[in-house]
Computed example of a mutant assay.
Amino acid sequence: MKFKPVLTLLLLNTCFAAFSQDRPAHKEHQHRIASTEKGLVKIAVMYPYAEGKTFNMEYYETKHMPMVAGFLGPNLVKYTIEKGVASGIPNQPLPYMAIGTFYVKSLSEYQAAIAPNREAIRADFANYTNTAPVILVSEVVR
């Protein structure tokens, strides 16, 4: 019976050591991911929430974003789709219903790919939303 507290302490120390060793590797992994995106151009297409505005996430995910991604070709590194769930301030309205983000290597190649397809992209909006997006183009610094 005297061994029970010692065994418990030994198990706790082993668990603590195991978890504390995982943390630096996790930070290195995060840094590695961030550094692979550094220098990319990020195009965030944000759909503001407002009373009476709608957004069809299924259509956006399965039709619209793949269509636009296809226009971008090899310049596209990746794209993400986010669904708004809450405001960062409690009891405040949701700022955006959704955000679609494209990560590309070259802004000029992005613009050249989008220009001839601009009307097709805009015409497709009616298939999934009744709000006008806000677009932010930025460079990933970290």
Rank of each mutant, 00 (worst) to 15 (best):
V77W: 01
Y59F: 14
K83F: 04
F71K: 02
F55A: 07
M65W: 06
G73W: 08
G88L: 13
Y103C: 10
Y79A: 02
Q92E: 15
E82H: 15
M57G: 08
Y60K: 06
V85L: 12
P90C: 10
G88E: 12
L72C: 05
G84W: 03
P93C: 08
N91K: 12
E58K: 15
M67L: 13
T80I: 08
A69L: 01
I89Y: 08
M67H: 07
F102P: 00
Y59P: 07
F71S: 00
S87M: 06
A86P: 04
G84S: 04
F71M: 11
V104H: 01
T80E: 12
V104S: 06
N91Q: 13
F55P: 00
S87N: 15
G70I: 01
N75V: 00
K63G: 04
K83D: 07
M67P: 04
P95N: 10
G84Q: 06
V77Q: 06
A86S: 13
G73R: 06
I99K: 11
S106W: 08
V85A: 09
A69F: 01
F102G: 00
M57C: 05
Y96S: 04
H64D: 05
N91W: 07
Y103D: 08
G73H: 07
Q92R: 14
E82G: 14
T101Y: 06
M57Q: 13
Y60A: 15
T62W: 09
F102S: 03
N75Y: 00
A86Y: 01
F102V: 04
M97K: 11
P74H: 02
M97C: 07
P93S: 10
E58L: 12
M57W: 12
F71A: 01
S106F: 09
K78D: 10
G84F: 02
Y79G: 04
G100T: 06
I89W: 05
L72W: 05
S87I: 07
P66D: 08
P93Q: 09
L107P: 04
E61F: 08
H64Q: 09
F71L: 05
T80W: 04
L107Q: 15
G88T: 13
L76C: 01
K63C: 11
Y96P: 02
I99T: 15
T80L: 09
K105I: 09
L107A: 15
M67V: 06
N56M: 07
P95E: 11
A86K: 13
G73A: 03
F55S: 05
G84R: 03
V77H: 07
K63R: 14
E61Q: 15
Y96N: 12
Y79R: 04
L72A: 03
P90S: 12
Y59Q: 05
K105E: 13
Y96I: 06
I99S: 07
P95Q: 12
P95L: 11
K78Y: 10
P74Q: 05
G70D: 02
Y60N: 15
G100D: 02
M97E: 03
F71H: 04
M57L: 15
L94I: 15
V68Y: 00
M67Q: 11
T101D: 04
V104C: 11
I99Y: 02
Y60Q: 07
P66G: 08
A98W: 00
N56A: 11
I89A: 11
V104D: 02
L72F: 09
K63S: 14
L72G: 00
S108A: 15
K83G: 05
F71E: 00
P74M: 03
P93D: 12
M57K: 11
G73L: 02
